[in-house]
Design a protein around this nucleic acid. Structure first.
Lengths: 343, 343
DNA sequence: CTGTTAGCGCTTTCAA
DNA sequence: TTGAAAGCGCTAACAG
């Protein structure tokens, strides 16, 4: 009798057919109470509901979705979960998606284009209704995005956007953020302001460079090529860039970094090499990572509404999914200058 | 003729039937090349492959999964994406899952039990093959977990674990971590060591308290109830606890916090109230958040292998999914004492 | 090696 | 208000 016990335990999930049989009715009727949009005899309805409760029925979304042709699932591809910006953006994405009855299938590219391609393939195979994408910094071209466009897949790009596709995009006004910061630095009397930029394939890098240049120009300071250096966003590379800049023996009184992690790398190098911050060289970041608040001196930076970016991106995508005719649009969010003590 | 154009554009996804028809063969044959486990005439196989390429065929996982009765999707419920520990753990989970051909459906509870319940319901409805759960700090009971057990759902709990269920668990040796830290503090000559603990419903809180007590005892220091205070993990609450402790006018020469965010809150209060760290009061944390490295003074803390916890949890769950007979097991990972300048 | 057939669990006409 | 039946895209016997 041990066997029957086992069989009992590995009970297969209960289906509408099971509960229909138990009640001596047809599965269509059961299905109807599930939709609660058709007319069903109130008594029957209640009996069905009770039975469902009793038998612990749970609708099989796979079957339902196969029938409906949509999954109410959004695929998300980001560079990495443990980048503070993305963990906050994902938080916004998930909350907004849940609010609207969507689930999220999440992948990280680990900053590798090939992984990114594979992720997108996997997500499409899972029949996601749409895609939220922030490209990897190694994505030198956007063929994969064009491919999505050709296939009419609803896509919204966020934060790291690129290309001229017919996709909505959500990002911050990088030009303005950089402009604001450099204005501030100049206002504090700095004149030799270096800039550590981000990877050249990302619009955000370009836009921040433009904002930096525009501010210099507006204040009659000529742009010096040798004060501009490209990095890869990482703490370690921030340190490398700072060392390189210092080794060039230029006069520098301030340094504006494309992101906080690089700025933190700069600060570490500056401290090691005996510079006082901000007295000898001021340091400014961008992104307002949690760490910016705790470092010494506190990092002056530009805050981005990362959670809100996630919310907007998800909302936009869902609107597009529900109405494919919904036109593309760019949502450009504002940044905020956060003044601490490093500049 | 505009209409026909539109119709052309909203082409429905191509199925195996489409490519079978195009080739004048049966869809079974097409299906067979998809499985590439059955014997198919090499020529036919190639023709099918070519056609798939040409027609841009993508298998419909929903259909496949409905048939197979499994989804190769793992449901994940965590308290919040933007807690550094979890963003790293998720990173490990996703990479390991992807390596083994699984996708992850992720939800956050925002530390709310009801949301947690809803998340789990949603994930189950999506027919996930198993669940990776870290409970919210407001989860005072574990009825929902018992329910999962009753339904034979493969579950692995990680980090924040609770209850006596037949689930595998992955967590760090909290007793040992706390013990190690307090030993270190005592070794530095501290005798009046306060402890800010975590929510009482979580084993990790209890275990760290036990480690703290055991170390005191081993060194002949008697445990003082008034030096123990319970907090909720947050920076703000760390500040609150610190103030409260200070206001009690006790002699304190060191404070050991259940997590770094609370320790950072303590440091802020201590600085504001004119205490020198570690001279007047030493501060120690737990978790080794990125910020711990950047604060001034650097925070002495206990590092947890957060990424690895994610990897182990995912691996364990997948093993259980593939072999339901696989017995439960506890994976207890080791911590590391990271000495900086705050203690 | 290949085609036919019967579902997986659900929704939704069409009739009654 | 209800039931019968077809079918979403795919897999897997079974038969040839």
């Amino acid at each position: 009798m041990v066997y029957s016990l086992n069989i009992y335990e590995m009970k297969t999930p209960v289906t509408i057919l099971d509960i229909a049989r138990e009640l001596g009715i047809s599965k269509s009727t059961v299905s109807r109470v599930l939709q609660n949009t058709y007319d069903v005899n109130p008594e029957t309805r209640q009996k069905v509901l009770d039975k469902m409760q009793q038998m612990n029925y749970r609708p099989n979304m796979m079957a339902r979705n196969l029938k409906k042709g949509s999954t109410s699932v959004i695929g998300v591809n980001i560079p990495a979960f443990d980048i503070p910006f993305y963990s906050q953006a994902i938080s916004g994405i998930q909350n907004e998606a849940a609010r609207q009855g969507y689930n999220i299938l999440t992948c990280q590219s680990n900053e590798d284009v090939n992984t990114e391609l594979k992720n997108i393939e996997t997500l499409l195979a899972s029949q996601v209704d749409g895609l939220l994408i922030s490209i990897s910094k190694t994505a030198r071209n956007v063929m994969h995005l064009l491919e999505l466009q050709r296939n009419n897949i609803p896509v919204v790009l966020f934060n790291r956007v690129a290309g001229q596709m017919d996709f909505s995009k959500v990002y911050v006004n990088d030009f303005d953020g950089a402009h604001k910061m450099v204005n501030y630095l100049i206002g504090k009397g700095h004149k030799k302001i270096a800039h550590i930029a981000g990877p050249g394939n990302l619009s955000l890098s370009k836009n921040r460079i433009e904002g930096y240049k525009a501010s210099l120009k507006a204040h009659g300071i000529s742009f010096a090529e040798e004060l501009l250096i490209e990095g890869d966003f990482s703490f370690a590379d921030g340190a490398r860039c700072m060392n390189e800049l210092l080794d060039r023996q230029l006069e520098i009184d301030a340094i504006f970094c494309v992101c906080d992690s690089m700025a933190l790398g700069c600060m570490q190098v500056l401290k090691q090499r005996g510079y006082r911050i901000p007295k000898d060289i001021a340091v400014a970041g961008y992104t307002n990572d949690p760490a910016a608040e705790y470092v010494d001196p506190g990092l002056t930076t530009i805050a981005q509404p990362s959670y809100q970016i996630g919310v907007e991106a998800a909302a936009l995508l869902i609107r597009k999914i529900k109405n494919p005719a919904y036109p593309r649009q760019d949502v450009i969010l504002d940044t905020e200058l956060i003044i601490r003590n490093s500049a």
